[in-house]
Nucleic acid binder design. Structure first.
Lengths: 215, 215
DNA sequence: GTCTATATCCAGATAGAC
DNA sequence: GTCTATCTGGATATAGAC
């Protein structure tokens, strides 16, 4: 719980502005004004505008690594306790996903950095690869492992796991990108996600209708 | 087959540069150099840099409208001849989609404009809405209509049509966005699309295994 | 660590000759 | 329709006082 330094506030203000207008379109004076100081004062904290940009990436990478660790633990937990798989219902799945999407949309850092990545994704091969890994591959791979467990527990129908993960994850990713562009469509996106998950489960779950009711 | 005017060449060079680096990062001098003239000469054709940007949008909108008309006719044809639905096989579907994706990736104008839209999508509510409409809604709605026809013809299982369209279309859209970032992954993306469509059909087609073989 | 003043550079755009 | 020369503004960044 350390206090927010000026250096941190510069980082967050820059992230805010970069994510809206892009790196090139934002001047260091705009950043300074947002922080409440004059432009030359920035240079006591960062040696250049590019340096601020790099610091944003470094900081977000740190947070991302933390989060990935948690996801891995969560999945390991689920795999260790195979009985939990059979208890999964549409309602719990929908709620889990909607919470995750809500967090991704409303956490300022997470959502701003994702938008920044979106508009700067073609700037270098490194950023391109990072984008695919973070926002596509990680979630797909997570669900591949999850579905492999569910199939093994006979809760889900057998099939091409990678394609199943894509069909589950991609509509959610697209909804997220729509909300990034048009926040006013969030409610609609959430209800589409709800319908999507129920449709997916009805197509791939072995025993959905009776899941919660069986004695 | 009219000849390519300087005005057109400016438009295409600007599109090329904007789609790589973004509007702000490209100077009018860069555009002029790409065309093979000096910067001030540009102003005889367009009154400002912003004017070039707007002209790109107007021209691409014109081409888009043409294409939409063709798609509508194609769908109307298919709907009028319901017997064709039952003849659809995985192989033809895969080929159709791969051709479409190949075109979207390799047509210079189409792919450059899509990348430009991607990196400029947060610049205004109008561009945001245009992006969603062009690159998400149109394809989803097309497949909703297609699937409605297929369900009516008893070729596809019944279900929530919108969700089914999302599950079919979104993995393809994500593959496209991956290839925009990382062209080196195209072959891999194509084979994932192949597997995805076959998995989708095996989940939703009423009678896949015998489709091509039944007497 | 913040400020004012300033150096330096380069962008978009215009004027006017050819 | 292209050029050279130029205007003007705004950007990043530095120097040095407080």
């Amino acid at each position: 719980m350390k206090q927010e330094t000026t250096k941190d506030r510069i980082l967050l203000s820059a992230l805010d502005l970069f994510s809206q207008y892009g790196y090139e379109a934002v001047s260091v004076e705009q950043i300074a004004t947002a922080v409440g100081i004059k432009a030359p004062s920035l240079y006591k904290h960062y040696k250049s505008k590019q340096d601020i940009f790099n610091a944003i990436f470094a900081e977000m990478q740190r947070r991302y690594d933390e989060q990935t660790e948690k996801m891995d633990l969560h999945l390991a937990d689920a795999a260790a306790d195979k009985n939990r798989f059979s208890k999964i219902t549409c309602d719990t799945l929908v709620k889990e996903v909607q919470d995750l999407i809500g967090y991704s949309l409303h956490d300022e850092c997470v959502s701003r950095f994702r938008r920044l990545m979106t508009i700067e994704q073609f700037r270098s091969p490194e950023i391109s690869a990072l984008y695919t890994q973070r926002y596509v591959d990680r979630l797909v791979q997570y669900h591949e492992r999850l579905f492999a467990g569910l199939i093994h527990a006979d809760v889900m129908k057998n099939g091409d796991i990678h394609s199943m993960a894509l069909q589950y994850v991609c509509p959610i990713l697209i909804s997220l990108s729509v909300c990034d562009r048009q926040p006013e469509l969030e409610a609609q996106a959430m209800s589409q996600i709800d319908a999507h998950i129920r449709q997916f489960m009805s197509a791939y779950h072995t025993d959905l209708g009776r899941a919660g009711k069986a004695t």
